[in-house]
Design a protein around this nucleic acid. Sequence first.
DNA 1: TTGAAAGCGCTAACAA
DNA 2: TTGTTAGCGCTTTCAA
Lengths: 326, 326
Amino acid sequence: MRTTVQDVARAAGVSVSTVSRALTGGSVSPATREAVVAVAHRLGYQPNRAARGLITGRTGNLGLIVPDLRNPFFADVAKGVTARARAVDCGVFISDTDEDPVAELEAIATLRHNTDGILLCSPRAKDAELLAAADPQNTVLLHRRVPGLSSVVADIVDGTRQAVQHLRALGHRRIAYVSGPEDSWATRQRLAGLATFDGDDLEILPIGSVAPTFDGGVLAGDLVLAAPATAVLAYNDLVAMGLLHRLAARGAVVPDRLSVVGYDDVSLAGMSHPPLTSVSVPKDRAGAIGLDLLLGRAGSMTAAQGAEVILPTTLVVRASSGEPPA
Amino acid sequence: MRTTVQDVARAAGVSVSTVSRALTGGSVSPATREAVVAVAHRLGYQPNRAARGLITGRTGNLGLIVPDLRNPFFADVAKGVTARARAVDCGVFISDTDEDPVAELEAIATLRHNTDGILLCSPRAKDAELLAAADPQNTVLLHRRVPGLSSVVADIVDGTRQAVQHLRALGHRRIAYVSGPEDSWATRQRLAGLATFDGDDLEILPIGSVAPTFDGGVLAGDLVLAAPATAVLAYNDLVAMGLLHRLAARGAVVPDRLSVVGYDDVSLAGMSHPPLTSVSVPKDRAGAIGLDLLLGRAGSMTAAQGAEVILPTTLVVRASSGEPPA
DNA sequence: TTGAAAGCGCTAACAA
DNA sequence: TTGTTAGCGCTTTCAA
């Protein structure tokens, strides 16, 4: 049988309420507290969070819902959340929905009643579904914005702009864009960034939508080579990696024949051949900030107030981008 | 205020115990059950798992402890666990210890009292520490074996043998081995596999230990080139990727000059340049089996009985291995 | 400062 | 088959 407050109280010769107070910071005499703490430690007492939560109404846990842990982007976000959670002694329920909007909604339904709040990362469900399923008071969206819910996002529009400006500065005038899932928030943000450019001295060539995966990038490779572009901006790093792979197979040297720029700057970006120029978005920081928002630790802002945090993006230049062919 | 059994009972005109029975599969008349279920659904009732756990002694949750979610190997394991957990309606507490043995032990201490069991993946702590911290009754080790605790591991010795045999069949006679963290279980297993070969017509050249990361592989690249080997076996895929990167930078063509074989077959392995030959270990399956063991769903075996599951490994041949230079 | 007692939401005896 | 009741381990009134 595990140690309970009862055991500690008996061993310390005080009442259970005194034990409780001593351990949670109530008013107890220093001597009593010291004694109780010592006994609790000696007995290896670990409070039952469930029982505590039952009465306080706070479980000390929160839920993190991600589409796919295997995607390094989400792994990074999860890392940021768990790191911060450990620092504030908060448990994290993880739910990997496998990119399934239905599983996502179910996870929200289960977790919202068994946690103090939910961190919903890049949800695939529609705005209306999310609004219906989530409690605005204790839900924070990560990397997605839905009116009526708190969110922490990166400045994707600006990031996209930085990427294009970088390519333009290098001399590129025709830039292909490989798009991700149509109708997704992230896709629309990227297009918004692109829209500020087309015209001028620059031409953006839409290559179409592919799955936001390595295979999607491979698929896009041939399409890009067939287009009159000297550079290509990919939906994300995974797509860019697939692109790199296919271009190499087709004998197109990067960046001599074609410059490639990715998005997200996941850890893989530095491992590709050549290393990938990419728009860096603060992934783990977004997770940590989301958690603070949920727990009301983010200074004046809280999730309940409908906070909208926008984090800056920065372009990380590596070897996959260079001057266009002469 | 959220809906409780009380609310459902009142609305359905029955007692709380009837509601409880109707919802958890006790003996109730079909008509009553139907009515209760309907009301519960209408009211959006979600049982409070904490309260339930308080009385049943089972929380319906388990803990998953991994060294680093950013490592694709652990992401895969986590994926296997969460997928299976979702199927059996079990919550998963995740804890990323950041490769810190102390954090690991702390996580065990916290989780063992607030979950039905712990899945401990590739722990970094010592055998004795783990034995002291964990409850053998409801702890399952993943990819690590400690006498006295249940475990699910891959047949690393055999996997290593397959890799070497593959290289020998290609004609290699001098194979470099880049080792991982000294004194780790995984490292010892690999060395055991290697030990069955040295001598014969084959020479294994130990290159030394590096961090099990991309950077570790980059570091090892030069060492490998300086050795008289025609092939190199890396501690894991991340190291192999770093190796590939450094070899390319040094102008050594893979596999013409040197064959490279990785370990784990993480998703990146297929994305490298050239695609990496790697020993595939069943990562997500290990996670799923571990969960079943913990929950007593793995047929006759349970964690409590000290189960030791060994999963087969298979070599996946890709383009990074070929015949040795003439 | 301390203790007694109530009760969080739920399930599991025990009766009816 | 159903309802009543007693807790699970904890915190928090309320008195002392």
